[in-house]
Amino acid sequence: MVFALTAPKAQYCLEYDTKFTLVGGDSGTGKSYLCELAVYAYRKYAFVRCYSDLPFVSLSFFGTNWRRDLARVEHSLVILDESKRFLRTPEFVSAALDSTNYYILMTREPFPQIPSEWKRYVVMRDGRLVPDPNRSLQAYLED
């Protein structure tokens, strides 16, 4: 499935096929701007063109009661970053696992509850997601 955004100064094309797509990597690659544009697209601001295979909700959809807000969303794509503290809670991961939604989460949290086969991604400067090239921690422990 695809979620794509085109704005005057940036474009993103995110392909995802698993329930959770965790996006981390280096600072300064445009994750926050992506989330900002997703908010504008959600508000249907005309300067952002959006294509999404699924209905989607962005940061601005969530108010003070995230559980209630999340319960209102089904069969949709949820795009969030760490500015929403609830994202880092086990309760959120549990609620997300129980839902019918897909999630693109801009976070470097380890999320031990999320199955490890759901790989981590980084955003490239051309707006694509690619698997995180970081080698495992094992490399630090080998002689």
Binding site: K9, A10, D26, S27, G28, T29, G30, S32, Y33, R125
Partner: peptide, 14 residues
């Protein structure tokens, strides 16, 4: 990438 920006638009890392 973004042209002239204010410090508010720097990355969270910086």
């Amino acid at each position: 990438f973004l042209g002239l920006i204010s410090p508010r638009e720097l990355s969270t890392g910086v």
